[in-house]
């Protein structure tokens, strides 16, 4: 197995994903032990432009692959590019973000080069010469630490926002354009269009972040405040049954036993007391934040973080603080 690491520089909408710098940092953890080099590959429209953005981040070289066949993402085309690079350069590790692209591409590329893959990792390290990847299982109820067996290259997808991104380390990387070698006609699944979310917000059942309001929202227009907070994350706005009954919100966003059952990474309950009807719809959320005036509200029994206070005061400050963080 090789000791060099290849970072897949994911490009979406012509821009390099933020996670790529985090991958570079993770790669450095590996090469810090193995002594290998870290390379990157950028594929698709915008690759060349974006490559310069990570030159000097400790990368030895950056391959830029941008021709007609790979201008848009396809699992087949991109897997072919990765496979040929791994074949040519003998990479031991390929890192990518655990994004919709990384999760789609990684296993296919790994299978093509007879490698192995660990998805959705939150930590990678070298332990006694062997790679150890930590990843959550059972919807985050446990972690496992895995190590590869066999000689194949190891593909690892890493969850965004888990590792501090690499900073500029001076110097520059060798940027080289490379043909994809892919025959466009041979690609059987083609992306024809990217459809942004209707109204800019995902459905509550599909959102990673949900900001929900209860009867304490007092009126419909106050939900704008929750939308503002949700929009920071590209999240959705939800409502308790009481809020829907009171006419503050529409039924399709009702969360609970008789509404939608949701399972986001972050659920912010604003002015929701937490009756079982509501809890039944959101209690499996990974992180629950409760904002309520009443310290004895049952929502606090299920929440991970709670603030006793007036939501009309708390929510705007929280929005402001998080906005600063996300910038």
């Amino acid at each position: 197995m090789g000791k060099d690491v290849l970072v897949f520089g994911e490009i979406r909408n012509g821009e390099l994903k933020k996670v790529v710098k985090e991958l570079i940092a993770a790669a450095a953890v590996i090469t810090g032990e193995t002594g290998g080099a870290v390379d990157a590959v950028l594929v698709g429209a915008g690759a060349e432009k974006e490559a310069s953005g990570i030159s000097g981040y400790g990368l030895r070289k950056i391959a830029v692959v941008d021709d007609d066949a790979v201008a848009d993402y396809s699992s087949e085309g991109y897997a072919a590019v990765l496979a040929s690079l791994v074949g040519e350069e003998g990479y031991g590790y390929v890192l990518m973000g655990a994004t919709s692209m990384g999760r789609d591409l990684g296993p296919r590329a790994a299978a093509r080069v007879d490698g192995v893959m660990f998805s959705d990792c939150v930590e990678v390290r070298i332990d006694g010469g062997a790679l150890v990847a930590r990843r959550p299982v059972y919807s985050g109820k446990l972690f496992v630490e895995l190590t590869p067996e066999g000689d194949g290259p190891v593909f690892i997808s890493i969850r965004p926002n888990n590792i501090a991104p690499a900073g500029e380390s001076g110097g520059s990387s060798e940027i080289a354009a490379k043909p994809s070698g892919v025959d466009r006609a041979a690609i059987r699944a083609i992306v024809s269009e990217i459809i942004p979310l209707a109204g800019g917000r995902p459905d509550v059942t599909e959102a990673d972040v949900i900001v929900s309001g209860g009867r304490a929202m007092k009126e419909e227009s106050n939900f704008r405040m929750l939308e503002k907070l949700a929009d920071l994350f590209g999240g959705a706005v939800g409502a308790s049954r009481a809020a829907v009954d009171a006419g503050y919100a529409e039924q399709p966003i009702q969360v609970g036993q008789t509404g939608k059952v949701v399972n986001p990474k972050l659920y912010i309950a604003c002015g929701i007391s937490g009756a079982i009807q509501h809890l039944a719809g959101m209690r499996t959320s990974k992180v629950i934040v409760a904002i309520n005036k009443d310290a004895s509200a049952p929502i606090f029994e299920k929440a991970h973080y709670g603030i006793v206070g007036d939501l009309f005061e708390v929510v705007p400050i929280l929005t402001e603080e998080l906005e600063k963080m996300l910038q």
Partner: peptide, 19 residues
């Protein structure tokens, strides 16, 4: 439609709430 979850919850977890 909301009844399906109730039935499923009772089948799997023997209560209507999926707990």
């Amino acid at each position: 439609q909301e009844m399906q979850a109730v039935f499923r919850n009772m089948e799997v977890n023997y209560n209507p709430w999926s707990i």
